[in-house]
């Protein structure tokens, strides 16, 4: 990681004093934390705590009012940062006029991956949606759409994986597949950050960050009993 050595840090994601306000309300209040390579970090907190906004800020969709977010040394939102990042949001959003396999193919190719058909088929099989490969997403259930969105995120080439509420709508096989794939990503030195309420995901995490009213209230060992606090 050239950028790491340049910055003299092993942190894949570095968030420093990030503040974001909407309409006078403070959504993120001097949020700071780091996520290292080859780790899974869960971001927990009640509804409206600022988790989704933070994920959006890290992937470059939301511009913080102040503070810094670096991904492998590159400022969030820049092309360099986006190239290493893959993200799946809480609400899956698919083209009505592209098949599932086309979604995955284009997602992979937009990250520079060519000839990834084998990997894409593997993802579809793991999420048990291979039978939907040639279908348009019209009429898909919430869970099916979620599986496609997660497959798209995982089809890319990435060093940072951001997931916002990935368990929503997933059946048990989908959850198992996701956990396996997250563990696989961790073993490949990917930095994973997940906004979630799910104890199962907290259980596999290496680090836990709790947000409350936009402030970080806890950073450390994952503890399931802190999810609702």
């Amino acid at each position: 990681m050239a950028n790491d050595s340049k910055k003299g840090t092993s942190s894949a994601i570095s968030v420093t004093d990030v503040v974001k306000k909407y309409d006078g309300g403070v959504i993120l209040d001097k949020v700071s934390f780091k996520v290292s390579q080859g780790s899974i970090t869960v971001l927990v907190g009640s509804n409206g705590a600022g988790k989704s906004t933070l994920i959006k800020a890290i992937c470059g969709l939301v511009k913080p009012d102040s503070g810094n977010i670096l991904l492998f040394g590159a400022k969030a939102g820049t092309r360099e940062a986006r190239i290493v990042t893959s993200v799946a949001f809480d609400e899956p959003s698919l083209y009505a006029d592209l098949t599932v396999f086309e979604h995955l193919t284009f997602s992979a190719r937009l990250s520079g991956l060519e000839d990834s058909e084998e990997r894409l088929n593997e993802l579809l099989e793991k999420f048990e949606i291979d039978y939907l490969a040639e279908r348009l997403p019209r009429g898909f259930s919430r869970g099916q759409r979620q599986k496609v969105a997660l497959s798209m995120a995982l089809a890319r080439s990435f060093k940072v994986l951001l997931l916002d509420e990935p368990y929503v709508g997933l059946d048990s096989s989908g959850k198992t597949a996701l956990v396996d794939l997250l563990k696989e990503a961790r073993s490949q030195k990917v930095a994973v950050l997940i906004a979630t309420h799910s104890p199962e995901l907290v259980a596999i995490a290496d680090q836990m960050i709790t947000l409350s009213n936009g402030k970080v209230t806890y950073t450390g060992e994952p503890k399931v009993d802190r999810i609702e606090k």
Binding site: L61, S93, L94, F106, S111
Partner: peptide, 16 residues
Amino acid sequence: VFRSEMRLVFLAGTDH
């Protein structure tokens, strides 16, 4: 830019 395009194309390593 509708969400599907934002998610797939704009958040890839593209030149905004």
